[in-house]
Design a protein around this nucleic acid. Structure first.
Lengths: 156, 156
DNA sequence: TCTATTTAAGACTTATTTGTCTTTAATATA
DNA sequence: TATATTAAAGACAAATAAGTCTTAAATAGA
């Protein structure tokens, strides 16, 4: 699996927040996010804490509280979410798991993998939350098993 | 992590066997492989059973027994080892983990991911054990934390 | 036939990831 | 000030991955 479940859920939640942007709301309660995306509330809470710790989200306690993206969705790249939760091992480590594998001390697959993992990195590095949120709205794409982004925004 | 530990160890063992090819030996004992690569013998045994079940290796019990590649290294592609151990989820599943994500019922990242995962698939699909084994010997590359392919072949 | 060597099979343990639940702290509003 | 609502923190449980150990079955060679 490329990304951990925690990372996948964090990405979905971030995309949900990006889609909710411009809805004239400061903070969205985590419960609303977890219900909308059909994720465990407590598990999602822990994941979102990682994103707030990384400075990608802000949280506020109490009534009218919740979470919010700390920057406009256009300025948040997917790779920030990936590294905040899964770290950068995917983009730095040897595909055969050998410690210190690199140009000088390589495994036989190093060159090909270095090229491929850069393609993965570029995918996450060049894609913003805004890009996916607007594409998702425009093309009516999914963010959960059943519901599209428009469905989700309407339902809250 | 792209590949499971089991898959990584299975790949290293397969590359070791490819490097040992043409050494005038039918079967190489698993103990020799695990000692050479500094892997757990019992764990590696279970992994190799998956490769023999998949028809990639053959095994023989008793004295002079061990394992052997069932085809010449030139005819075994890395993807066969990956799919035998980790399955094909990496090449078929949604990066956001949504069931049934595809062209018709897509997530916002589907198009980019479909392209990137194909690059990963091509990497494994177009690389044979022979290619890596000969490259490893030629360039003195590593197959364990400390030892290169030549080291390993000489030491047995 | 007996013994040593080797893989096969599977029970078992440990570590990590995933998920649940309870309590605490902050805060808006009545 | 009292209450309801919300995130934070952390204990706990379940599921999965990773790794260990023992016994059984096959086989070569003495």
């Amino acid at each position: 699996m490329l990304l951990s479940k925690a990372c996948i859920y964090g990405m979905r939640a971030s995309l949900f927040m990006a889609a909710m942007h411009k809805q004239n709301r400061q903070f969205v309660p985590i419960r609303e996010v977890s219900d909308s995306l059909d994720l465990s509330f407590h598990f999602l809470t822990k994941i979102l804490q990682q994103l707030t710790a990384a400075g990608l989200m802000e949280s506020y306690k109490g009534p009218k509280g919740g979470i919010a993206l700390s920057r406009p969705p256009k300025e948040i790249m997917l790779i920030e979410i990936v590294t905040a939760i899964d770290g950068d091992a995917l983009f730095t480590e040897c595909v055969l798991g050998l410690p210190g594998c690199g140009h000088k001390k390589a495994c036989p697959l190093h060159d090909k993998w270095a090229y491929t993992r850069e393609a993965i990195q570029i995918m996450f590095n060049s894609t913003s939350l805004e890009e996916l949120a607007s594409k998702g709205k425009r093309m009516n794409l999914r963010l959960s098993d059943e519901l599209t982004m428009e469905d989700l925004i309407k339902s809250v």
